[in-house]
Design a protein around this nucleic acid. Structure first.
Lengths: 252, 252
DNA sequence: GGGTTTCCTTGATTCAAATCAAATTGTCGT
DNA sequence: ACGACAATTTGATTTGAATCAAGGAAACCC
């Protein structure tokens, strides 16, 4: 739980016009609201960095002074209760924009779950950028709406789905997202640990593990390695995720 | 579960410049982004209506063609699973803006839980309005961010809090919101049924009822009527809501 | 104003997932 | 290749909330 201040981060190559042009994340990020001609302006205020697993760059309750755009790797966003109970509210990958807050303080903590790269924007500089590129603000509103829809879906999961349905939903969503990003494979990667999956789904490590094992023994998935899952029956998984299981273990 | 089409709604007084000026909800709604001089323009595209308890005006999965602004009363927003399990993702009161969606279809259902008044905006008309009043778009982004923060808080509740903590959080939040709206009383009103509270907190009716009874027998609240709660110890309630209960029933 | 319906409360019992407790596997540094 | 540690799986037991099952209290409607 080391913050930026407690451990110096490795700063990537100094700000240059090229890093925005070459940025892997640009095509799926809000940055694509800015035309190629103006990328220099974006690059001038973007502050690229690299972080390792475990590094915290947004901390719940701290003053919200910076905004971030993940350009590679995955981070987890979470909230905690004083006794240590944790709820991961989402995972954010390449292209994701973070830190948007009306309030003066961050509402959640953000931590790298694998080595990542990100761009930092200071509040006043982003403000200027938003004023100069109204399209950027529209894109931000769009992404906020999409996140709201995802949050509602997650509330349904946390409030009303069984452990089985939660794990199926998780796999199905991961599958959907990765295939939206081009990969048409039925093999999905899980950069997060079982503990992180559990904290995301409102379950315990044991329940997540048992449920995956169960899916495997039912022949619905394969677990070739710790961080990979192969979906042997994606359609069945979608049904379970939607709460339409032909009852826990059907008698076919 | 009657939709707008299935039962005709009572249309309020015809669109006139005055209804926006006199609107109770204006000071807390996104509409306050529009100056008093331009209210006529707003009134021209706003379509006021009255709805009764139980009427659905946004339905999950249906084409997202309209936007709504609640001007009086309370609505519930929910998602459902095919077998009838329901998760209420939020309650929206006067001033709340609804229906914002990037997608072509609504992601949730909205239903009046008491007689309400609202303003309807068609998608193209709202688009024009947004283009003419950039401040409106900024306000929408702000409210979306606030809702995102609330959604994350609710995920923490649904994923990690006990029944006791959930009910305490619900009462504490209601109290906080009503006092933000002026009322400094420790008496809060609950326009929703126990079933709706349960569907909001991811619990059953029985658990909500038992928990409230328990708080009452512990001397922390009073239940003067079915839809009113008096907080006798607001500070204690906040502690329980935050997960810092001095253990379920302390031995004082 | 009496009967019906709906909502709420209370009690007994069950159950899904949590907790407690090892055993196993995988990873990393040396 | 070898320990040491961390992550995961698996098993036994407990438990908080769900479910099942009545009662009671408002609100609603002829």
């Amino acid at each position: 739980m080391n913050t930026l201040s407690s451990r110096p981060v490795i700063v990537a190559k100094p700000s240059s016009a090229s890093h925005c042009i070459e940025c892997d994340a640009r095509h799926r990020s809000v940055c694509n609201a800015i035309g190629e001609r103006d990328l220099e302006r974006l690059a001038a205020v973007a502050n690229p960095r690299k972080l390792e697993r475990g590094q915290v760059f947004i901390e719940e309750g701290r003053p919200a002074i910076d905004f971030f755009n993940i350009t590679s790797g995955t981070v987890k966003l979470y909230k905690m209760l004083p006794d240590g109970r944790q709820q991961i509210t989402g995972f954010a990958g390449s292209g994701h924009f973070l830190g948007l807050a009306v309030s003066e303080t961050y509402a959640f903590t953000a931590e790298a779950i694998e080595p990542i790269e990100l761009c930092r924007f200071s509040r006043p500089k982003l403000r200027t950028l938003l004023d100069d590129f109204p399209a950027l603000e529209k894109r931000l509103l769009e992404t906020a709406c999409n996140e709201l829809v995802a949050a509602q879906e997650q509330m349904l999961l946390l409030g009303r789905k069984t452990a089985r349905e939660r794990v199926a939903s998780f796999l199905a969503t991961r599958h959907g997202e990765s295939s939206a990003c081009g990969k048409l494979s039925d093999r999905i990667s899980l950069p997060m640990t079982r503990a992180e999956i559990a904290d995301y789904l409102g379950l315990t490590i044991e329940t997540v593990s048992r449920t995956l094992t169960r899916f495997k023994s039912e022949g619905k998935i394969a677990l070739p390695s710790r961080d990979e899952v192969e979906l042997l029956d994606p359609h069945w998984l979608l049904d379970v995720a939607a709460g339409q299981d032909s009852h826990t273990a059907s008698f076919v």
